[in-house]
Structures are given as C-alpha cells and as structure tokens.
Design a protein around this nucleic acid. Structure first.
Length: 341
DNA sequence: AAAGCGGGGAG
DNA sequence: CTCCCAGCTTT
C-alpha cells in the first residue's frame, strides 16, 4: 500500500502533464470570475465541443455581470437556445441580479458566498474560487469520479448521493497546493486520456500509479448502479398561421423546456375546419421519449383570425422574427424547415 | 435520499 | 441502441 507521500506525487505528475498538454480553450486565457462562472454553467453536463459556440456568443453579448443583470430573461434564454437544461439560463440571470443587489456588482471571492448564488452548487463554487481566487476546494465532477475510482480501483457507487463527499475526501490525498490548476488538470485528463470508454492509458501520466490499469480493469470503473429509465409521452401542437404570421405562447418554469416558447397546445372548434394535416416527430430527452404531433392550421378567414387573436393571449410572430425567441429543439427544427421553403 | 431536467456525440 | 458529459434544484 502506498503511503501518503507517494500519493501527493500523483498530483504533481498530473500538474506537470497539464502544463504540457492543457487544452487551448477561450476561458483558459482569463481569470475573470464572471467568465469562469459562465463557462462552468455552460459546460455542466455538456461537452466542450457542444457548448463552445454558446459560451463565446454569450460572453460577447453579456461581457459582465451588469450587462447580464440588465438584460431581459427572454434574451438570456435566446442565447441559451438549443443548449438544454434551460433552468441554467434562468438561474444565471437571477444570480447576476443577486450579485448586483447583494455584492454591489462585484463577484464574491469566498467559497461560502459563491455557493449562495442561484444555480451554483458545490462543484461550481469550488471551481470558480480555486481558479480565480486561490481557493483550496477540489471541484469534484464526473471526471474526478472516473479518474479517482480508477487510480484507487475504488468501487464506491458514483450514482450514490454520498459520492461527492466520498470522492472529495479521496481527492485530498493527491491534491497539490495549486488547486486551481489541479482542478482543470483533472478535467483535461478525464476528457482527453481517462475517457469513459477506451481510455488512452498508454499516454496517461498516471498509469504507473493507477491500480485499475495495473489490474487491467479500467473498464470496471467507475461503478454506477443507477440506470436511466425513460417514459413515453405524447405532445400535441397546433401551428396556427395566416399569411406570414403564426401563434406562440411561453411555457411555465416547471416541467420540461422552462420558459421556452411553443405553439398552442389546443384550438377551439371554430379553427378545426382549417386543419390541413398533421406531422409526427419523435424526440428523445434524457428521461422521456416524446412523440410530437404538429397540426398545420392555415386560417384563411381574416375575420376568424382577428377575432381569435383578440380573444386569446397568444403572441403573434412570424418566421423572420421567431429566430429571436428560444424554442424547444423539435419546434426549432419545424420552424427551420419552413424557413428553407 | 432520490427524482427531474436537454441535447449531442461516441461506441 | 445505451451511456455520458466542467451538476443543480426540488421534493
């Protein structure tokens, strides 16, 4: 069994590898806590390649806390369009207002204060405080679970609610003094070398220290018992349009697609005569298999259209200006297809 | 302690 | 097809 001195050497090796192999990412060039915060939220449960454009566009439009806090929630959601987990955008906006009101517009530097911001949990608070303010907390994420469970061949269930505390404790054994770089090094190692499947152990700076590798059992770690189950769900939408205009409404902030815009989900009998047909789309979410029926309702009567619009609180928009609103992916695809014609 | 929340990419 | 990704909030 290795003693504590040997284990600390692992962190040093990891840092040296990181200084030679760090990924060239836009947010690596700054220690602005605002930018680091935004990037941490964008990349929660999101691959770098998937979120990079969203991150760049977001910080270009909202370069600081004040700009973000003064923007409308709908515009923040627009810049989140297509990224998923939309409560992240809503919480980012709330936290920006929180920083203005509670911290005089200055991003807090202490872990405990950062943790109070909406949408920031233990991982993000540790990441921002260590990268920007020399904080000493490990930013334990999925990469930490995977790398540490392999190094120590530890079968602790990463789907357990105690996994964060457990692997946080484990990380202190190898964590060097430069925690900010260590946290980012663990992310890069987990992403580039110690990948979920087919890890590149031959290129790993820690392969001499990795128990799972020495046992040829890297594929058995990390242990995750909880399986994802998804249910089937039918949705019904009505694309109610006349000439270039169509109707939309905004979703609530519960259930899926929080605060995003959508087509009407029901129409009165007087409009049913205009229904020209229906297309069905399959769309997969992490916990749901959606089957979405979209009815094409072309209202040809000016009188009925005007009356219906005035009697309901639907928003009237058109294909051109709808690009300035955030729609769920399947509805976005539907609109994009119409734009191509 | 457990469930719920998007979308995309890899194998 | 299944699994996973720079996790957090709510119940």
């Amino acid at each position: 069994m290795k003693n504590n001195h040997d284990l600390l050497h692992i962190g040093t090796k990891l840092l040296n590898w990181y200084y030679q192999n760090a990924r060239d990412l836009p947010f690596r060039k700054t220690k602005d806590p605002y930018k680091i915060w935004i990037c941490e939220i964008v990349f929660q449960q999101t691959r770098i390649l998937q979120g990079l454009n969203h991150y760049n566009r977001f910080v270009e439009r909202f370069p600081d806390v004040k700009t973000l806090a003064e923007a409308s929630e709908d515009e923040v959601l627009l810049y989140w369009k297509g990224l998923g987990y939309y409560s992240r955008a809503i919480n980012i906006h709330k936290a920006a207002k929180q920083i203005i009101s509670d911290y005089n517009g200055i991003f807090p530097s202490q872990y405990e204060e950062i943790l109070k911001l909406k949408g920031i949990g233990k991982y993000t608070a540790a990441a921002v405080s260590s990268i920007c303010f020399k904080g000493k907390m490990p930013a334990v994420d999925g990469n930490f679970y995977r790398v540490l469970s392999r190094i120590f061949a530890d079968d602790f269930d990463v789907s357990s609610s105690r996994a964060f505390a457990y692997f946080s404790e484990l990380s202190y054994r190898i964590m060097p003094n430069n925690v900010g770089d260590f946290n980012q090094a663990m992310m890069d190692l987990g992403s580039e070398i110690c990948k979920p499947r087919n890890p590149l152990c031959g290129d790993c700076p820690l392969n001499e220290d990795c128990i799972a590798f020495s046992l040829q059992k890297t594929s058995q770690f990390p242990v995750k018992t909880k399986k994802i189950k998804s249910e089937n769900l039918n949705l019904q939408y009505f694309f109610v349009h006349r000439e270039e205009q169509f109707l939309i409404q905004q979703r609530k902030d519960d259930f899926i697609w929080k605060k995003l815009f959508e087509f009407p989900t029901a129409i009165p009998e007087v409009l049913q005569q205009f229904s020209k047909g229906c297309k069905t789309f399959q769309h997969k979410l992490t916990h749901k298999n959606l089957s979405i029926d979209i009815y094409d309702v072309e209202v040809t009567s000016n009188e009925i259209w005007d009356h219906f619009v005035s009697e309901h609180d639907y928003l009237v928009t058109d294909l051109e200006s709808s690009v300035n609103r955030s729609f769920p992916k399947p509805l976005e695809n539907y609109i994009q297809n119409l734009l191509k014609d």
